[in-house]
Design a protein around this nucleic acid. Structure first.
Lengths: 158, 158
DNA sequence: CAAGATTGAGGATTCAATCTTC
DNA sequence: GAAGATTGAATCCTCAATCTTG
């Protein structure tokens, strides 16, 4: 006799529905980004972070701003390199990137995408949230970010 | 002069923190599954769905139960085939699967994983939720699932 | 033909290992 | 050597195209 469940059926349903709702929203937003701007969700994240930055960023700073690990950023930059939305400065003969910034077209795409993505977030999500729901989710998000460590990069103390 | 933002800074922060919190929880739960049971989140989803089923499922029914599209399920089954957690019956000479069920070891892993995964969900999430937060999130999830169509499989009426 | 199912290609993510530079 | 950055392999996910079978 082993207790298989550590959650009640009601708790499982709660969790399952929450995760499914989340995934559908994310999928839907990703599809819109692709359809309307030809970019993926990951590309959008890079573009919007660079758009918000004062100037060019090093890979590490980009990673910190995004909460991603460096290898994820490096792979993403590699894929985006041929898209022309980025301006990458590299070091001499090697493939090592020194800084990343938006190109002119990158900036244009970023601004258009930010605008329409925001609209979709509003109509898919924000418009349906009552003030108490917003409050509840906001406090959960903050508590969770405080509770779970950010993406541990190899060099981090720990 | 173009309005770049359709959301206020506060709204962006709200959304950004929500998504980051979500991703960290999911990542953390995935890591535990891998560490403790040697399975991924996707594998867990398949195992738990088959465990809940009365008997063997066809690919389409598995996909419907999961809210995944069939190709996603097919790829996942292909990867899991060599793991020995599944019992697959196929049709004569072809690679076409007729039904999917848990093997004995699959059932054992599923039961253990359900138990510990539930514990992690409780300690990472449920324990920190006040009743009002649970209520708010539950109603958001339901509304969202009702609002967004499930994964459209090619054959679905539209 | 249509419903059931698989395949291939391309981007995304993670982990561990390695390269580069100071 | 340590900090900055890339690489390779394995899994995952989506879309479009194709195969299989009733």
């Amino acid at each position: 006799m082993v207790a298989v469940d550590s959650l009640t059926p009601d708790e499982w349903t709660f969790w399952d529905q929450w995760m499914r709702a989340q995934e559908r929203i994310v999928r839907e937003l990703g599809r819109s980004l692709q359809l309307e701007h030809g970019i993926t969700k990951a590309e959008f994240s890079i573009l919007v972070t660079l758009h918000a930055a004062a100037g060019p960023l090093r890979v590490t700073d980009l990673a910190d701003a995004l909460g991603w690990d460096k290898s994820r950023v490096a792979h993403q930059l590699t894929r985006m390199q041929r898209g022309g939305h980025l301006h990458l400065t590299s070091a001499g003969t090697s493939q090592r990137r020194r800084s990343v910034a938006l190109s002119d077209t990158g900036r244009q795409i970023a601004e258009r995408a930010i605008h329409s993505h925001g609209s979709h977030i509003r109509s898919l999500v924000l418009d349906d949230l009552a003030p108490e729901q917003t409050t509840a989710i906001r406090s959960w998000s903050r508590a969770t970010l405080a509770k779970l460590p950010g993406q541990a990069n190899p060099g981090d103390k720990g």
